[in-house]
């Protein structure tokens, strides 16, 4: 099985639209969405949730109010401003460091596993689709990404391909997204920050020994930037496998929950995505 991850230096570059399009085109595959902060792939794909699994990925402190004598010692040592003067813990700000536990004379404070999100096992027809959502204000998206990938590994067997909608950015979440992949496709935009975002994320992939490919979205917005991206890729021996033009009709299609693959007016985008896929297969 070949595993491809789609990533982007920043959010909103069109990553999920590309993956959703490929989901409609590629046969015998499994899908996963590891953009756990803002998962979008499930929105465009007609799926049925088979199982919703709670995920506890962080620890937070809890005060047993029956034991608390309001000595404020916890409040005094907390450096995250997570304990109020009246000794109430704000779960959104608690880092789970445990400093308050150490100073509490009554042993009224303990650390508890905190629900930080859910993993969803879904089916699209007969194909596996695994996705997740991080809880509001929660930390630990990297762990949730790793959990999704673990669940996928348990499920997939005979499939030819695993397509993963990755996380945006360059941090640990992205690394968690791309580990184990055969290749990653970086979806970028032809904007002033597009090239630097691309460079940073491409270096991350390089560093972990994962072959990268580039798809330039809205390439006609700024031809100069597009040229610079192409030049950069050439120097790095990275293939630009897709160039998608600025096309308001894509947004129109999305509004009707359609991908470019199922909209007659978007034949030109469809053929670009198919050619992207063919090149990806050819080069891996």
């Amino acid at each position: 099985m070949k595993q491809f991850v789609f990533i982007s230096g920043k959010g909103g570059t069109g990553k999920s639209t590309v993956v959703a399009s490929l989901a409609k085109y590629v046969n015998n595959k499994a899908l996963a969405d590891v953009d756990v902060d803002a998962p979008n792939l499930h929105i465009l794909l007609d799926h049925e949730v088979v199982e919703k699994i709670p995920f506890k990925g962080a620890k937070i402190a809890k005060i047993d109010q029956s034991k608390c004598t309001n000595c404020h010692k916890g409040y005094e040592v907390c450096r995250f401003d997570a304990i109020s003067k009246d000794d109430i813990i704000n779960p959104l700000k608690c880092e789970g460091c445990g400093a308050c536990l150490l100073v509490c004379p009554e042993n009224a404070i303990t650390l508890h596993d905190e629900l930080t999100g859910h993993v969803y096992q879904s089916k699209i027809n007969e194909e596996h689709f695994t996705h997740a959502l991080l809880a509001v204000g929660a930390e630990g998206s990297g762990k949730l990404v790793a959990e999704v990938k673990k669940k996928v590994k348990e499920l997939v067997k005979e499939e030819d391909y695993l397509l993963i909608d990755g996380s945006p950015g360059i941090g640990c979440v992205v690394i968690a997204s791309i580990t184990g992949a055969d290749a990653c496709v970086i979806v970028t935009e032809a904007t002033k920050s597009g090239l630097s975002d691309l460079q940073r994320v491409q270096q991350v992939a390089d560093h972990f020994g994962i072959k990268s490919f580039v798809c330039i979205n809205k390439y006609d917005l700024n031809i100069d930037v597009t040229k610079k991206i192409e030049e950069y890729c050439k120097n790095k021996n990275v293939s630009v496998i897709g160039k998608i033009p600025f096309e308001p009709l894509i947004v129109k299609a999305l509004q009707q929950f359609k991908t470019p693959m199922d909209d007659d007016k978007l034949g030109h985008i469809k053929s670009e995505i198919i050619s992207l896929w063919n090149q990806l297969i050819k080069e891996t």
Partner: peptide
């Protein structure tokens, strides 16, 4: 060592 990826924040 390879570069750090500073945990899974």
């Amino acid at each position: 060592a390879v570069a750090s990826h500073f945990g899974m924040k």
